[in-house]
Structure formats: structure tokens, C-alpha cells
């Protein structure tokens, strides 16, 4: 299996889907001539031309709305947000227009659109550029929220997202773009709404997504050295949430820690915890714990930033707590 970067896996997915379906076009800031702020769209302008790889002014609300309008009349836009921090300007279009069109039109008008770009913190980008907003979008009925953690997942999920008839918020990771992984050759898709067990284990289930998958896997490795067997579940899709995989695992391990990059309050993990306690209360041997970003705007200082992020040590501490070790 060839090894690709996450960035190139996304690029392949875009390329293949644009080759496959003329209705698919890519729009956003710097996607064309500049080749993408993070080079995800490298080479696409050359292959598909300016009709289908459309550079926009810095006007997130505007081009998100353009995407919704184009999707309403049959195109399949992929709208790139340079980062999801900037997508805040487009939230009205995503929430009030994209997510609701099908419902308020009684099923007459759908919005098959992907809004994609990096989310969460990178390194020392400060408060306004280091935010994980998946819980915001996941809160909205009508939206799907997808967050791949590996190159293979990135490709398979983006292809499925583009083919999906619903608005899909597809959140990548700036820190993930350079990560490498094996990506199957040829045509393949990964269905939305299906979590993936990234590591099998028996003592505790660690639920995570996106960048925190690497955090959880690292923690699991260190826990294994202490004789603790952790199962790592990558949600991959936040909405619809694959509750089955999570519940099946926690029913086996009886203990769970949910890790996410975003803030604690009303985060994705809160939904996971709710599901677990509601569905398999009797399987729990300990309260489900959550490891999240600190409840602060992201500081610039490197040490402070490190403190604010979920890391393997925090995950390990939580795991030991639910196992009543220590």
C-alpha cells in the first residue's frame, strides 16, 4: 500500500471526485493560483481550470452562501475554509441556510455541500486561530460532521462526504496535513457515521477523534507498558455518531475516557458520555471521564499552550482513575 501524507490523500480524494462528477467544484480562498493555503488543492487548478477551482475574495459568509445556493440548484460544491476559525463568519450560512433548507422546504431542496478545512490548534497561533468547533456544528440537526485522523480515513471519508446529499462539515487538522500513512490504492470510500477501532484493548475504552487519536494511541502504548490494555476508538464522524461501536466497546471494558481537543463544556465528549450512561449504565464500573482542552482562549506562550492541550499524560491519568489504579 502506498504511503501518502494526509494532505495528498485529501488532494487525491478531491481530484478523483472532480474527475468522477462534473458537478463537483472547489471554492475558497487561495485554492487555485496559490495552490491552497495548506496545499491541499495543489495542481487542481491546472487540471480542472478556473471554472471548477474557484478563488474567492476573503468573504467566508459570501462564498459559503454561494456554495449553498449552487448546491440548492444541483451542483456539489466543496467549500474550503482556510481554517474553521474563519468559518465563524459563515456560520449563518451553514446553520441557517445549509442545515435547514431540506427541512423547511419539506424535502424539496437539499444542500449537498462539503465545507472543509483545518480546525483546532496548530502551534502558537494564539487565541483566534486555535479553536476546535466540531461540537458547534455537531449540535445542528441537518449537518454531518466528519473529522478524519489518518490519511486513509481522510481520503475515504472526503470522497463519501462529497457524494453525500447533505451538508457535511469536514474538519481536517493543520497538524495532520504532514502526517503519513498507508492509503489504499484505487477507488475506495469510507462510509460516514462509522467509527474505527484504532487499537484493540480490554481494560478501558478511549474515545477520540481527529488529532486526539494520536494522543490516545500514544497513551495506550504507555499504558500497555503498565499492563493496562486500552482500546482506542476513533469516532471519525461526529454526527451521525457511531454509538454502536462505542457502546459495544465500553460494554466490554466497563470503563471509558473520552478525549477531544475542544473545550469541555458541552463538547463532543459530553454527548458520548450521555450516550454511554443512558444506554449501558449497568456496564459501567466507573464514571466516564473526559480529557479536553483547557477552558481558556488559547494562549500564545508555548508552555502555556502545552498546558492547555489534551496530551497523553492527561489521558493516562484519566485512564488510571477510571481503573482505580493509583
Amino acid at each position: 500500500m502506498p504511503t501518502l501524507t494526509y494532505r495528498d490523500a485529501l488532494n487525491q480524494a478531491l481530484r478523483e471526485e472532480m474527475q468522477r462528477d462534473d458537478r463537483v467544484f472547489l471554492m475558497g480562498e487561495e485554492v487555485g493560483v496559490y495552490q491552497g493555503a495548506y496545499k491541499v488543492s495543489r495542481g487542481l487548478l491546472e487540471e480542472f481550470g478556473a471554472r471548477r477551482v474557484v478563488d474567492t475574495p476573503i468573504t467566508e459568509l459570501g462564498f459559503a452562501g454561494v456554495g449553498v445556493g449552487a448546491a440548492m440548484v444541483g451542483l456539489r460544491p466543496v467549500i474550503e475554509m482556510m481554517t474553521f476559525n474563519f468559518a465563524l463568519l459563515a456560520v449563518d450560512q451553514i446553520v441557517n441556510s445549509a442545515a435547514k433548507m431540506r427541512y423547511m422546504s419539506n424535502g424539496q431542496v437539499g444542500v449537498p455541500m462539503v465545507v472543509r478545512g483545518p480546525g483546532g490548534a496548530a502551534l502558537q497561533l494564539g487565541a483566534q486561530h486555535s479553536q476546535a468547533f466540531e461540537s458547534w456544528y455537531a449540535h445542528i440537526p441537518g449537518l454531518k460532521v466528519v473529522m478524519p485522523a489518518t490519511p486513509a480515513d481522510a481520503k475515504g471519508l472526503l470522497k463519501s462526504a462529497i457524494r453525500d446529499d447533505n451538508p457535511v462539515i469536514f474538519i481536517e487538522g493543520e497538524m495532520l496535513y504532514n502526517t503519513k500513512g498507508e492509503v489504499p490504492e484505487g477507488e475506495y470510500t469510507i462510509p460516514l457515521g462509522v467509527a474505527d477501532i484504532k487499537r484493540e484493548g480490554t481494560d478501558v475504552t478511549i474515545v477520540c477523534h481527529s488529532k486526539t487519536v494520536a494522543v490516545a494511541l500514544k497513551a495506550a502504548e504507555q499504558l500497555a507498558a503498565d499492563g493496562i490494555s486500552a482500546e482506542v476508538i476513533d469516532l471519525r464522524t461526529i454526527r451521525p455518531l457511531d454509538t454502536g461501536t462505542v457502546l459495544e466497546s465500553v460494554a466490554r471494558t466497563h470503563r471509558c475516557v473520552v478525549v477531544e481537543e475542544g473545550w469541555h463544556f458541552a463538547g463532543v465528549g459530553a454527548q458520548v458520555v450521555d450516550t454511554i450512561q443512558r444506554e449501558i449504565f449497568d456496564a459501567l464500573d466507573a464514571p466516564v471521564l473526559r480529557v479536553t482542552g483547557a477552558e481558556v482562549p488559547m494562549p500564545y506562550n508555548k508552555q502555556l499552550e502545552k498546558l492547555a492541550k489534551a496530551d497523553p499524560a492527561k489521558v493516562i491519568a484519566a485512564v488510571r482513575q477510571v481503573l482505580y489504579v493509583d
Binding site: 466497563h254 456496564a283 459501567l284 466507573a286 482505580y324
Partner: peptide, 24 residues
């Protein structure tokens, strides 16, 4: 007792009343 402990106790007919819990 944790929910799991209660379930196990119910299944095995154990009385939790006198059990020393090692959790918090």
C-alpha cells in the same frame, strides 16, 4: 457501588451491604 458492580451482584446473588469498596 458502580453500576457494573450492582449488576454483577444481582446476577450472582451477592449482597453488597458488607463489601468493602476500594473505589473513591
Amino acid at each position: 457501588a458502580s453500576p457494573l458492580a450492582r449488576k454483577i451482584a444481582a446476577e450472582r446473588g451477592l449482597d453488597l451491604q458488607g463489601v468493602a469498596g476500594s473505589g473513591p
